[in-house]
Structure formats: structure tokens, C-alpha cells
């Protein structure tokens, strides 16, 4: 017993160091697993509040770009509206038939240069958000909500080793997975694509619609480079349409059929 006490006394700094280091390590490992909600996250009132205040100072610097983006989106939507035939306006709309609802939120913290990127947005459960909702802009997919508090939420960006987005080729409906290798934030990598899928440089990649997080056909990027090895595709580089370094306002997708789909899927287990 005395020996143990002596040992602890002698190495107490080292033991404290090891103890805290193990704790930090556990937090790191825990933050790597997708399904566990992170303990250390910025979706809380204190960090969220700080980010919101600091964001309100720097917001003005990006207003011009943000305006341009909104104007482009408006033009796009107007063009789409114009192509819808006139008689459709006479069909009575029932809001319960709407599958996807969009909620606007503002990105208040963005780290795009890390290996594992997480964004913080200024909406939370009070605004009807919940975990596992998709987040997009008019240019493409941003990520999925992974932590939430009453007024803030964190978004697991597509630039994160944990995030694997189901995608497909717009032209041919072959499915694949988008998985970032951590090098350049303008490019992500397409994995698990069938070897018989015809792909070319310049092909557009859209969301697959297999997951309930994103509706089918949301833009993601275009293929910029790939190699063929042993008749298999390798290193398919996808240039993302969204500039992840410059995010202002984003849309959160609320799928109204989500509960129904999940209930149905759980019955099969």
C-alpha cells in the first residue's frame, strides 16, 4: 500500500497527464463516430452566441456576393415557373401533400480547411429543426445536421471523413458515394461506382434520393478527373458546385414523410 502511495506521489504529474490525455483522446474518438452525438460541439448557447455576435460584424463583407447568388437563384426559379403550364395554377394545393419543406438558416461558423469540417447554423429545435436533416444551398449539398440545441445546430459538412453522401450520375442513374479525402476543399471523391457505368469528364453528379435526407436530383458537382485501372474506376475527382469557403444563407430540408418511411423500414427489422 505504501508503495502505491509512493508511486502515485512520485509520478503524479505524469499520471495526471496520462489521465487527461486519455480523456481528450476519448473525446476525439467519440467525435469520429457518426451515430453518437458529440459531447464537444458548438451547438450550445455560449459558443453559438459568440459566433452569432462575431458573424454580425463580418456579415457585411459578403453581402454583395450573397445578393448576386440570390438574384441568380431567383432567375432560375422564375424560369422554372415560366415553364410550368398555366392550368397547373388551377389545381388546389394542399400543404400536407408537400414532401419537403425548406427552412432558411444562416451559417455563423465555418471551418473548411480542416480534415473534419463542421458548420454552425443559427437555427435549432425552436425553429423546427432536428438531427439528420439535410442542408443545401442553391448551388448544392452542404451537409447533414448532427448536433442540435434549442437555438443552434451543427452541420456535418460534406468535407468530413464521417460524411458519406449517396449520389448518382445525372445522365445514367448509376449510384456511388461521395467521400472527401481531406486535400482540396473544392474537390471531393466519388467512390463505389459500378464498373459498367459510363462516365466522362464533365458529367454532373446529383444527390441519389436513396436517403431520406436529400430529395433526388440536388446538384453536387461535376467530374473533373478519373483514372481507369483494371477496368475499374479509380480516383474520380468531383469539382463541387458549392464554394464551401463562402457560405451565407442555407436551406434546411425537412422531410415530412420521414417518420412514415422510417416506421415502415423499422418494421422489416
Amino acid at each position: 500500500m505504501q508503495h502505491i502511495a509512493y508511486f502515485i506521489q512520485k509520478y503524479k504529474y505524469f499520471l495526471l497527464f496520462i489521465l487527461l490525455e486519455v480523456f481528450a483522446f476519448l473525446l476525439t474518438v467519440q467525435s469520429r463516430s457518426y451515430h453518437k452525438s458529440q459531447f464537444i460541439n458548438s451547438a450550445n448557447a455560449i459558443t453559438g452566441g459568440f459566433f452569432e455576435t462575431s458573424n454580425s460584424f463580418f456579415e457585411y463583407t459578403t453581402l454583395k456576393k450573397e445578393n448576386l447568388r440570390l438574384a441568380e437563384e431567383n432567375t432560375l426559379l422564375r424560369n422554372q415557373l415560366a415553364s410550368i403550364p398555366e392550368q397547373i395554377h388551377t389545381i388546389p394545393l394542399d400543404s400536407t401533400l408537400q414532401t419537403n419543406e425548406f427552412i432558411t438558416a444562416k451559417v455563423i461558423s465555418n471551418n473548411f480547411k480542416k480534415r473534419n469540417n463542421v458548420l454552425t447554423i443559427d437555427k435549432g429545435t425552436n425553429d423546427g429543426l432536428s438531427i439528420d436533416m439535410g442542408v443545401i444551398t442553391s448551388h448544392g449539398i452542404i451537409g447533414v445536421i448532427n448536433n442540435i440545441s434549442s437555438n443552434y445546430a451543427t452541420v456535418l459538412s460534406i468535407l468530413n471523413s464521417k460524411s458519406k453522401i449517396n449520389v448518382k450520375l445525372k445522365r445514367s442513374h448509376y449510384f456511388g458515394t461521395l467521400d472527401w479525402n481531406g486535400k482540396n476543399y473544392r474537390y471531393s471523391q466519388l467512390q463505389d461506382i459500378q464498373r459498367q457505368a459510363p462516365i466522362q469528364i464533365g458529367d454532373t453528379i446529383v444527390s441519389g434520393g436513396k436517403s431520406i435526407l436529400f430529395p433526388e436530383g440536388i446538384l453536387i458537382g461535376r467530374i473533373s478527373d478519373f483514372k481507369i485501372n483494371n477496368k475499374n474506376y479509380e480516383n474520380i475527382e468531383v469539382e463541387l458546385f458549392t464554394d464551401m469557403s463562402n457560405l451565407g444563407y442555407v436551406h434546411v430540408i425537412k422531410n415530412n414523410d420521414k417518420e412514415e418511411i422510417e416506421k415502415l423500414e423499422n418494421q422489416n427489422d
Partner: peptide
Amino acid sequence: DFFSNSGGINAAATL
């Protein structure tokens, strides 16, 4: 780490 959503990496390195 709290502010940058990075698990415990800054804590481990600083310690």
C-alpha cells in the same frame, strides 16, 4: 475544441 467542433484534438495537443 468547443468552438471548432474538433472532438478533443486541441486539448490533447495543448496538454
